[in-house]
Computed example of a mutant assay.
Amino acid sequence: MNGLSLKRFDWTMFGTILMLVALSVAFVYSAQFKSDLEVGSKWWKQLLFAGMGLCAYGVVVWYDYQQFARLSWWIYGGALVLLLMVFLFPKVNGAHRWIPLPGFTLQPSELGKIAVVVALAAFLAAPDRDMDEWRTFWGCVAIAGLPFLLIAAEPDLSTSLTFAPITLAMLLYKGVQRKLLLIGVAVVLVVATAACFWIKFETSPQIEAMAEAERPAVVLPRMPFLEDYQKGRIKVFLTKDYDKGDAGWNKLQSQIAVGSGGLHGKGYLKGTQNILGFLPRTVAPTDFIFCVIAEETGFMGGAFFILLYTVLLGRCMRVSFRSRDEFGRLMALGIGVMVFCHVFVNIAMTIGILPITGLPLPLLSYGGSFMVSTMIALGLVQSVYQRRRIR
């Protein structure tokens, strides 16, 4: 039944969302701060995006989430159409990721993640679905694989890779062909290891210009499957001193920013790595917003933000446990894993334990499509909680 019941509302989840959104606006402001007379405009745009996201959140919560199960294939098909449409527009920064609309740009890959979660949940929750049949496994692979390929072709490999843990978690919960899952995970790990080895030792113009005697002992031909900037990020991660002035600059400066915050930080609007421009202003409000936070609030502030995300993820898992049906349980689980992937990968890349990627931080990083899509996803979780089984 559609409607909104304040008595059945998860106020802890909603309060955590509001706190993260408010802090997002504050630190996006800080990420663009130069002086009292010169501040970028992204902070008020982020406030507008947050308002749009909260409206979308309220609409999704009002609707009975079971209606999304009945519309799951329409939602999935619409997402695929949007993912195909991006290739009709000119590249922006070397990628087909956005659809220009009056006043803003739409990034369909963010909506694609939600569509995959809803479609997988509806597919696996069907009462006549046999989890022991190989068709069930390959059906899930196809549902996640098609948008994966489209997003990877944009290219946006970091976003497309989030489909893997989401699909894996949902399949593990349902017990779908665990032997095939183990084989699939093993194959992925072997391929990823081989790709990293190839990228680390592939040839380059600098190596080719060397004399034969000066070249490294192991030189492999160039890998054709990834863009140069993607391979550069992996080389920076695998090779400590690789290209610190170009491809490795963001990683170096992000680690300096996080480390220089110390225990209590330098203070709000006093982060030198950010204000002096060592941390590039093009990425500080988006992918590297945690660096700004860690520099200004220190270890204690960073731990507080991780605590907020822990609460948010814990509420998602609680909703999954208390759902009245399998569709709601699977959907809450998939969205929780999606949020966790973004949080873990984003923070890990800023401190140097994962390669630099383009995954933003949920509810904190600047961006309209990401903010609204995250709100929609969390609205679906709240909708499940509204109509939970009372225990």
Rank of each mutant, 00 (worst) to 15 (best):
L171R: 03
V176H: 07
S323G: 05
V283N: 05
V187H: 12
L23W: 12
A294L: 03
I256S: 01
C341F: 05
F9E: 11
G139Q: 10
Q67N: 11
M223W: 13
D287T: 01
P285K: 10
K231C: 03
V61I: 14
C196D: 11
T167D: 01
G248S: 04
K179M: 13
N250G: 03
W11Q: 04
I353P: 00
A377D: 07
M19P: 01
L171M: 05
L279W: 09
R215L: 13
D130Q: 10
L4N: 05
V116F: 09
C140F: 14
R233Y: 01
Y76T: 09
L380M: 15
G139V: 13
K200A: 12
T167P: 02
S260N: 05
M131L: 11
T12P: 05
R315D: 04
A195P: 00
L361S: 06
G261Y: 03
A284G: 00
I347F: 12
I356F: 10
I234E: 04
G58S: 04
T193L: 14
R97Q: 05
I114K: 03
P355R: 15
D36M: 11
I376Y: 07
I151R: 00
T16E: 00
V337F: 12
V319C: 07
S109C: 11
R315N: 07
A247F: 14
K174H: 09
A332K: 06
I353N: 03
F27R: 02
A303M: 06
T286Q: 10
V59Y: 02
L171V: 14
A50S: 15
L161H: 02
L279Q: 01
V372A: 03
T350N: 12
M317Q: 07
L364N: 02
Q253N: 01
I293R: 01
A169R: 01
V39R: 04
Y57V: 09
S373R: 07
R8M: 13
Y268G: 05
D10E: 03
V117F: 01
V219S: 02
F344E: 02
V21F: 14
L48T: 02
L263Y: 06
V218A: 07
M338D: 08
D36F: 11
K174S: 11
P205D: 04
G259D: 06
S320G: 06
L181P: 02
V25A: 06
W74K: 05
G248K: 01
A194I: 14
N250Y: 03
Q107K: 04
G314K: 13
L330E: 00
I306E: 00
T282A: 15
S204Q: 14
V187E: 09
C196Q: 14
T282G: 15
Q206M: 12
C291A: 15
N274L: 08
G78D: 08
M338K: 04
Q32V: 10
I17P: 00
G53F: 04
A211T: 11
G328C: 06
F87A: 09
L157Y: 02
Y76R: 02
R322M: 09
Q230W: 00
W138F: 15
V345A: 13
I99G: 10
L307A: 14
G58F: 09
M19R: 06
V381T: 11
K42M: 15
A194H: 12
P280H: 10
E326Y: 13
T272Y: 09
V311E: 06
Q253T: 05
I207Q: 03
F14T: 15
F321L: 11
